[in-house]
Design a protein around this nucleic acid. Structure first.
Lengths: 345, 345
DNA sequence: CGCTGGCATGTTCACGTCAACATGCTGAGC
DNA sequence: GCTCAGCATGTTGACGTGAACATGCCAGCG
């Protein structure tokens, strides 16, 4: 019965059945198989059934490479991202993946092992092979600016949480708004001023949060104390927190992310300074665990899901219509828990 | 000068230059361009330079779809994963991405929005389109077993942290070993027995940890108290922790992950039970933040990176040679910090 | 009864690449 | 001077798909 016994030889037969095979089996033309495969309506019910049966029998799977070659569309979007370590990136990626899937696109991850310039170039080199319809970049700004990394011309790009010199459409959490929320909350409670533990100097989001914190203090006529600079890790928050714990004047701390806030909490416990009794602490991100910190952390919630969804939306709009988007800001929300209170004085 | 002014019309010209365009520009045949593109040695230095110049001038990028069609290889591996929410999954994904990139493969994410059977099928449907050379599945076991989800025949698969009925090669953290380490550590400190907060009933890793905890207690002649069942979240750890805090006999708790351990810590603080003074707590995972919990958490470290790397290794081995792997176990390590101590009695 | 329109189905060809098979040239060896 | 090896380069065709363009059939209508 079988027509291709030669297949049974030891030589690994990699290729699966093609349309032609299905067509032969169902006694129709390849084009009819194509129509069934794509759910076209103009196929007789009987014929369709016969074709579907043949597909099932042979285990036919459409070859996406051939489709992409034919149509010029890959139905895939690339995501360039640093080691997925960070909580926010994860959540963003998750949302991107979900939104892309819903839109019928798959996600190709393009990881950047280390955030050094050389490595970033490597990631972009991967793009030199045409394989995605567009790219979402989730990488710190300065790495894009300093590298004269040239993205393939005409490749739609959306940048998340970064500036990229304004060259591309971007989607971003409203960092400034969030930092303002946090600072005003503490000021509103009666604290004379607010200390800030910032993220790394060259980070886009860290910079925006720091600037907004400073601006808010000025607007309210509060002192602007020196910034402490961490590296996003809870370790750095802990170290800097110990430093702040030594200063009795410190009553309010705004950490640029929840991890550093966690480190601050630990430092305060170690130093015997009560939170929120003596010192109030606010974070940024609202990660899953923040509600279970001790005490549960007051923090600025970022809507990573929204950021991811919007960036896919923007990108696919450009992919499908050619129109470039502008800048999209996603709001934040202050989540008040138990790590903040009026100063005891 | 330009030959294709028609391109400038409004109609979006999606396709980039092809080999033929480069060939024309460099005055060589397409085959020569192909040879240069693939770094073959048998090309005259001058010619090569001319071709490279033409490529640069036109912004040529090889079309991966055409390559895949021609070669039958996609140089891409699919990763099926639940919402990337969990810390461990992220880290695993990160390692998978890194290892795949190093091997010249790209990663196609196939997210499963919700861990219900229907959704899993959807994810597998995506695979019905031929587009990856192999698949790594990071999904809880029972969802694979209960669905008669049939993977395309002949598609290499590696399963991570799951059983999948033993149908496929797997790479897994040695859950049992880790749970044993944790339990023996607490027993060794002098605790009479150890309470366990497990992950969800049907989770593969949760089950293995629970079983090993129980077995270890028995081996040491300790009481086997009832298990509490959480859902991996710090919230559930908190709730169950409050329950345990009420029982003065409880002196040692082994939580099945760090998040739940965090919830337990919070519960103990709220209940005024000192950690580790009155109650010792051990987690599982060693997430980045665990060292900054209050107190810093004693926990079982999982080597997610190793798991990811190994699974890629296994998969690519099968992709390239056709040989199926077996089962790979990755060891764990106990990280002792400040949340455990001898019982005060 | 012949004409037309609508529908199911078939045929042809190009998408971009690269393996396999020419071709043509240079120079070493006899 | 002739042969032939060795190398650079060219030509042809096929990978699997689907758009564009046939073809052929039947119903409806004047």
């Amino acid at each position: 019965m079988t027509t291709t016994d030669a297949t049974d030889t030891l030589s690994v037969r990699r290729r699966g059945p093609s349309m032609a095979d299905v067509a032969r089996e169902a006694n129709v033309s390849g084009q009819t198989v194509s129509r069934v495969s794509n759910g076209r309506s103009n196929v007789d019910a009987d014929t369709r059934e016969r074709v579907l049966a043949a597909m099932r029998k042979l285990g036919y799977r459409p070859n996406s490479a051939a489709r992409a070659l034919r149509s010029g569309r890959f139905h895939s979007i690339g995501v360039i991202m640093f080691t997925l370590s960070s909580f926010g990136n994860m959540r963003t990626l998750d949302a991107i993946a979900g939104a892309a899937t819903d839109a019928g696109y798959s996600i190709t991850l393009i990881p950047v092992p280390h955030p050094t310039q050389g490595e970033v170039s490597v990631a972009f080199d991967r793009l030199s092979e045409e394989a995605v319809d567009g790219v979402i970049i989730v990488v710190e700004a300065h790495l894009l600016d300093e590298n004269d990394v040239v993205l393939p011309a005409g490749l739609p790009v959306v940048v998340v949480d970064s500036t990229a010199g304004g060259r591309y459409p971007m989607v971003d959490t409203d960092q400034a708004h969030g930092a303002r929320l946090a600072t005003e909350h503490l000021l509103g409670l009666g604290h004379r001023t607010v200390r800030h533990i910032a993220g790394p100097e060259r980070s886009y989001s860290a910079t925006h949060r720091r600037e907004a914190w400073e601006a808010t203090l000025r607007e309210h006529g509060a002192d602007v104390p020196p910034v402490l600079v961490g590296d996003w890790s809870s370790e750095s928050g802990h170290e800097l927190g110990l430093e702040l714990a030594r200063d009795p004047d410190v009553t309010a701390i705004f950490a640029a992310n929840d991890q550093m806030a966690l480190g601050v909490l630990r430092a305060m416990h170690e130093a015997g300074r009560a939170v929120p009794g003596e010192v109030s602490v606010v974070g940024f991100d609202d990660m899953e665990e923040s509600r279970s910190f001790w005490p549960p952390l007051t923090t600025v919630r970022q809507f990573f899901g929204e950021v991811g969804r919007r960036s896919v939306e923007e990108l696919l709009h450009e992919v499908e219509t050619g129109e470039r988007g502008g800048r999209t800001l996603v709001a934040t929300e202050l989540i008040i828990r138990d790590s903040t209170a009026r100063p005891s004085a």
